[in-house]
């Protein structure tokens, strides 16, 4: 609902502005991580990964368990990203690879099936009830007051991490050998394979990278949300 009075009052006050801007940043950065995974995959492989939400979920659940066992949030994030990557590579090489040439609806169907299976497996492993990870102890501190606004330190960490990962990804795709090969393969896969490069391997790797981003976003966001099965498909809204 639009409330222009509130908007104008808010724009006039620094405190409100600071709070709102950081709020926008935090939501934006997490969405950005998820979206960049989708874009990365779509840009190179020309396939829309409708099942991207499932990897977000996998990341969140793995992070939950890792945190419960190890008690270290940073390790939990890494574990979340890794598990999503591994399952992503499997998903690519066993299923998605077979429908690259098919029409959009066939790809959608494969993703839908994957999401259904993931949701039920998650339910079997973790149960259907919601799980809450809780804010890690190191971030259970009072929010920082800045120019009258309120900014939780945990969100500063989230935004910074997301930014860092984004920059790393950009560098990887632009400058690394992996990035160059993948981009070349996207332009002309046959030519690249003639040069003796195993293109399918690189495609699987790229798919895994995209999924890792989603898994990482899920793991990063895990402390502030409850994890529950059934949110695998990319929500249209």
């Amino acid at each position: 609902m639009l409330n222009f009075d509130a908007l104008s009052t808010c724009l006039g006050a620094t405190s409100c502005l600071v709070t709102q801007v950081t709020t926008g940043l935090i939501i934006g950065m997490l969405l950005f991580l998820v979206a960049s995974g989708v874009t990365l995959i779509f840009g190179v492989l020309k396939v829309v990964n409708f099942a991207h939400g499932a990897f977000y979920m996998i990341g969140a659940y793995t992070a939950y368990t890792t945190y419960a066992v190890v008690g270290n949030y940073y390790l939990a994030v890494v574990a979340g990203a890794l598990s999503a990557a591994v399952i992503g590579v499997l998903f690519e090489s066993l299923m998605i690879r077979r429908v690259y040439k098919e029409n959009l609806l066939m790809q959608l169907l494969v993703c839908y099936a994957f999401v259904l299976i993931c949701d039920d497996l998650v339910k079997m492993i973790w149960g259907a009830e919601y799980l809450a990870m809780g804010i890690p102890a190191e971030f259970r501190v009072p929010p920082i007051r800045f120019a009258g606004g309120v900014v939780p330190p945990f969100y500063i960490f989230l935004v910074a991490t997301s930014l860092l990962v984004a920059v790393l990804c950009l560098l990887l795709i632009t400058y690394s050998r992996f990035g160059k090969i993948v981009r070349a393969a996207a332009a002309n896969a046959t030519m690249v394979s003639v040069l003796g490069i195993r293109v399918p391997l690189y495609f699987a790797g790229l798919f895994g990278l995209g999924c890792a981003l989603a898994g990482m976003a899920g793991a990063l966001a895990a402390p502030r949300a409850v994890a529950d099965a059934g949110h695998g498909l990319v929500d249209p809204d």
Binding site: M95, L109, V110, Y112, F114, I117, D119
Partner: peptide
């Protein structure tokens, strides 16, 4: 009660095997 799992497997079969 895991109907989703069954649905997913059947769909995969139809798409990947029957095509």
């Amino acid at each position: 009660t895991h109907t989703d799992l069954a649905k997913g497997v059947v769909i995969l079969f139809v798409v990947l095997i029957l095509k």
